[in-house]
């Protein structure tokens, strides 16, 4: 299996992969010539070695804006399964077991599958995608994700003709996520995309950031990243991806139907009922900046919504 990967990808073009705790994986990384950078000093509780990866494929979808510092990306997180304060996940998520991990793809598909992380990493070369991330709360960051296109994953299971939407489910394990005993949201955390949104090349399954394995507080081992939508659409620590016919009810829609719609596209002209979405504070900047339609990805994604009233379909 390992040789097969090595055969397929020339050594010069190797896209290193975030590998997980097993020795076998570590040896494979070493043999592929990746640089194991030891313990990530900045990552809280970085007991599982954070490997740095070189030679990542540069993506034309990346922004050239300055990435938000690693420390900020990994200490300012909304991951309610580990607490509602943004500093909570960095503290509380460190005990999350991310290996072994499987993600099940089922629902309206010809070939339902359950993939482990190794299988997932074999689907496509890992790319670095530097994306803007706009939170519904009015702040934003720039994150250098590592991941594979979501489409590469979805194609594995041969969706049936009546599959119109994808539902993403995050892990819900009260033993590992004591905060989920409170009913602040409906667990498991559920998100959704229309099939064409999910198949869009910008939609990413992230497995790492800043050249390292995805930190737990950012949704390890795999999360969704949809850069033209508000950050909460990016379900973290995903265990199930279901193909469905009807638009799924997401956790935030259930929590506040008037405040959080299914689409949740970044849109400066549609305010959150309680606050304006016209501007945002980019972390690290003093003055607020104007929020861009579709978070600046309009050129790529506006076509998905032709003829739709985005005020109604917020």
């Amino acid at each position: 299996m390992n040789t097969r990967i090595a055969d397929r990808i020339p050594a010069t073009e190797i896209t290193p992969r975030p590998l997980y705790e097993s020795r076998r994986d570590f040896l494979r990384v070493a043999s592929l010539g990746c640089i194991a950078a030891g313990i990530g000093a900045l990552a809280p509780g970085a007991a599982w070695a954070a490997q740095k990866f070189a030679n990542l494929a540069h993506s034309p979808y990346s922004t050239d804006e300055k990435p938000t510092p690693y420390k900020d990306v990994t200490t300012y997180n909304n991951f309610y399964e580990f607490g509602t304060d943004k500093r909570d996940p960095a503290h509380n998520a460190q005990a999350l077991r991310v290996q072994p991990w499987t993600v099940t793809l089922d629902g309206l598909v010809a070939r339902p599958r359950t993939l482990d992380l190794d299988a997932l990493l074999r689907l496509a070369p890992l790319e670095e995608r530097i994306y803007r991330m706009r939170c519904v709360e009015g702040w934003s960051m720039v994150v250098p994700w590592l991941g594979i296109p979501l489409a590469a994953l979805l194609k594995q299971v041969e969706p049936l003709g009546n599959a119109k939407y994808i539902e993403f489910q995050s892990l819900h394990d009260t033993a590992q996520m004591p905060e989920t005993r409170s009913r602040v949201l409906d667990w498991p955390y559920t998100e959704g995309l229309r099939l064409d949104e999910a198949m869009h090349p910008l939609s990413l399954i992230a497995l790492g950031l800043y050249g390292e394995q995805l930190p737990r507080q950012n949704g390890a081992p795999l999360r969704l990243v949809v850069p033209w939508k508000y950050g909460f659409k990016g379900a973290k620590s995903i265990v199930r991806i279901r193909f469905v016919e009807r638009q799924p009810d997401t956790s935030w829609m259930r929590a506040g139907p008037s405040e959080y719609g299914f689409y949740s596209n970044v849109n400066p002209s549609v305010d959150h009922p309680r606050w304006s979405q016209a501007t945002e504070r980019r972390l690290g900047e003093f003055l607020k900046r104007k929020t861009l339609m579709f978070n600046g990805y309009g050129e790529q994604v506006a076509g998905l919504y032709t003829g739709m009233d985005l005020r109604r379909n917020f």
Binding site: K71, D72, T75, K86, R87, W139, L283
Partner: peptide, 14 residues
């Protein structure tokens, strides 16, 4: 003091 020490986290203004 926390502001001076840059100890207010990722979003000091908030």
């Amino acid at each position: 003091w926390a502001a001076w020490q840059d100890d207010l986290g990722a979003n000091p203004i908030e």
